[in-house]
Design a binder for these strands. Structure first.
Lengths: 232, 232
DNA sequence: CGGTGAATTGACACTTTTCAATGCGGGTGG
DNA sequence: CCACCCGCATTGAAAAGTGTCAATTCACCG
């Protein structure tokens, strides 16, 4: 694996405080790998042989059953996924596939568990990361159960707007089909929601969105710190 | 706190392997408390001063916003809740209230974090518990996004049936209003779903359900290990 | 004994999904 | 280089599912 990748991983909250030799062992055992778009990385029900880290690109976590399929989350750099299955040595609850060409780091699960036992700092970091994953799913669930579809779309745009530092023009980071599934609706409904929001402070043009009236957008979306704030 | 309670807590997976003196410190700092039904224990947004453990009774985790409200989970003995907020020292994402009269054990969050740092066994147990919480929410979310309301109700009954060891007559453990909210629907719709399932292997009588044809119930519910199995 | 709240049922309205048709790119292969 | 095709996005119309409102019954509790 490349030295720059190694430094990127080292800077992750999960690895920042890990002992040098423990970190070395983890990295020595790991594989960095570039994947084309739309490659299935893992399938739900299989066992967790590697902890995955997205170094570059974009990975979709999804789940399916009886002809239906839904996106559960989108993982962007630099984050881990399937940590829970790894530490508990349990089968995946979700499948994963690349959305775009992506660089991944695979760390053997056994090494992760060993490092956990050897290094209290790593243990502490894993707990923090796991707790964040948990809270993130809880927020998604509140988003789904407590909000109408238009509110979900509106708040998604607000988050994008914030992440872009309040830029007037923002761009959807991936296709609307994925986005619709994440937000718990059909692509057709997402289209209509975007349409409806155009009288409430936004202007759509394909994947580009112009924020014309942030106050109006917030008025209809009713953002909530305990759902939308990625910190907290 | 009573000696029997102490032994019950000691037998929890979370505390089974904890060092004796660490466990002593935790218990000395803790409070056991009996609460009447329908008491609000914590409110979302507040900070996590105590890790909560349900020793007896039944606690509802719920969330609200802009006039809407939804149940997120029901915690039954003997389990912890708000562990993630406790270990990360973050604000609650959910509120909690007793459903019935309940006995709770409250452990100061600072003591939990101290014990985590002192005892690797406790650290390991916390990770396992957190990962289980995470996986449990993911399953709930799959249940919501991947299934129709009738399938959700059907699978809920199947789980009850299994928990009761396959008894022909089973009983709903709490009110239908709560159940409806957990399953992501209105009480009216839950009534109709129960009605619809009566031609598929069940017979309702108030809170009592007779399982007349388990195969038919499974045929319409399509149970899935990766959603319904509490282990895994 | 009256009051309160849960559960059930029916009618209705609304949201969401489904199906179908169209237009718009981005690729591939001729 | 262009024609073609495939998948995505959009739009409309119909169908299904779900939520809302209202009325009734029932059990429980003060």
């Amino acid at each position: 694996m490349r030295q720059t990748d190694r430094e990127i991983v080292r800077d992750l909250k999960l690895f920042k405080d890990v002992d040098a030799d423990v970190f070395d062992d983890l990295m020595t055992a790991s594989y960095a790998q570039r994947m084309p778009p739309h490659v299935e990385l893992i399938r739900e029900g299989e066992s967790a042989d590697f902890l995955h880290i997205v170094l570059d690109g974009c990975v979709e976590l999804f789940s399916s059953g009886h002809g239906r399929e839904t996106s559960m989350a989108i993982v962007t750099p630099v984050s881990t996924f399937i940590l829970a299955a790894t530490v508990n040595d349990a089968p995946f609850l979700m499948s994963a596939r690349t959305i775009e060409s992506s660089k991944l780091l695979l760390i053997p699960s056994q090494n992760v568990r060993d490092a956990f036992a050897r290094d209290p700092h790593f243990a502490r970091a894993i707990v923090t990361e796991l707790a964040q994953c948990y809270r993130s799913v809880v927020k998604s669930m509140k988003n789904l159960k407590l909000r109408t579809s238009i509110e979900r779309v509106g708040n998604y745009i607000i988050r994008l707007h914030d992440k872009a530092g309040g830029a007037e023009i923002i761009e959807l980071p991936y296709g609307k089909k994925n986005l619709a599934s994440i937000l718990g609706m059909t692509p057709e409904n997402l289209s209509r929601a975007f349409g409806a929001l155009q009288s409430h402070g936004i202007l759509m043009d394909g994947a580009r969105i112009e924020i014309t009236d942030r106050a109006a957008l917030e008025a209809i979306s009713k953002p909530n710190r305990l759902i939308d704030d990625p910190r907290s």
